[in-house]
Amino acid sequence: MELNFLIYKVILVLIVFSITLLVATYSTYAERKIAAFLQDRIGPDRAGPFGILQPLADAVKMFMKEEMIPSVSNKILFIIGPGLCMLTACMTGVIIPWGKSINIGGVDYPMQIADVNIGILYLFGVLSLGVYGIMIGGWASNNKYSLLGAIRASSQMISYEVAMGISIIALVMTTGTLSTGEIAAQQTSWHWNVLYQPLGCLIFIICAFAETNRAPFDLPECETELVGGYHTEYSSMKLGLFLFAEYINMFISSAVISTFYFGGYNMPLIGRWVHDPNWLAILGFVFLFMKIVGFIFFFMWVRWTLPRFRYDQLMNLGWKVLIPLSILNMVLTGTWMMRHEIMAYFSK
């Protein structure tokens, strides 16, 4: 039993890891196609039918390019930087409930790698470590522009983490748990958290955009001001890893938003037609993926629609709008939850 359990978990980790990489790879293709669609172009169509082999061609290009490490850089940290970025990007997938458990031969196989009872805190821990890859990479390049880009990126991420944390506190208050598995399980039929926490959900999505450094918050990358960004000195696949980590983050953020606010693997009314629990679990996985793909499309749609912010506007939005709003949301949620006690107090 113990060994079976271990083998099962290892297989699950490998599956989640490869799905993450696969989705991130094809997000790059989707990004190009959606950009082309929104700008009335065709987009990549040379490699394979409809250009679906484009990510492979990109990967080959990235690997084949000349690898350069600046001689004045700190070599070990220069190599660790992009690796750390990828590591923290991949670590969050562990706590996401991909579906209900599947029952094979009387044994339940949950589709979540680790249902730790502090899932949300784990998420924030990993999120706050995401800064290190960028900062180490930017500093180790020994280039003023890289350092400035790294500082921009990390101060943006730190600022938006605060609002994100406070918006999540309101969610934790209504659900009464820190475990991601339980949060997903509570949202049966139409009891999606977005209906109970609309403001919190909006703040969370905005902060997710800022955390993944996506447009309209893609300030860390700026050719006109910073030459490139924190990855100015990087070339070949090291640059590729930095860019790829952004797509993984986007996939994981979409999964987190779907799980926390949009019902996770639940879909209303499906219980009427499908009764077998195993089929329900598999369908739940499919539904979660549909939601995730929808959010990835939303991320790209916003990128190619909205103009970017100026850096001071970004900081103003983070500190002077989102944080007070999220605190207001928390206070309102608390007041609503304690309404019976408050009414009883005043009617005395």
């Binding site: 706050s128 900062m135 500082i151 990390s154």
Partner: peptide, 14 residues
């Protein structure tokens, strides 16, 4: 991890 590694040490690094 969140407070020390994620917040305080990042400021030190800054």
């Amino acid at each position: 991890i969140i407070v020390y590694a994620g917040a305080i040490m990042v400021l030190f690094l800054f």
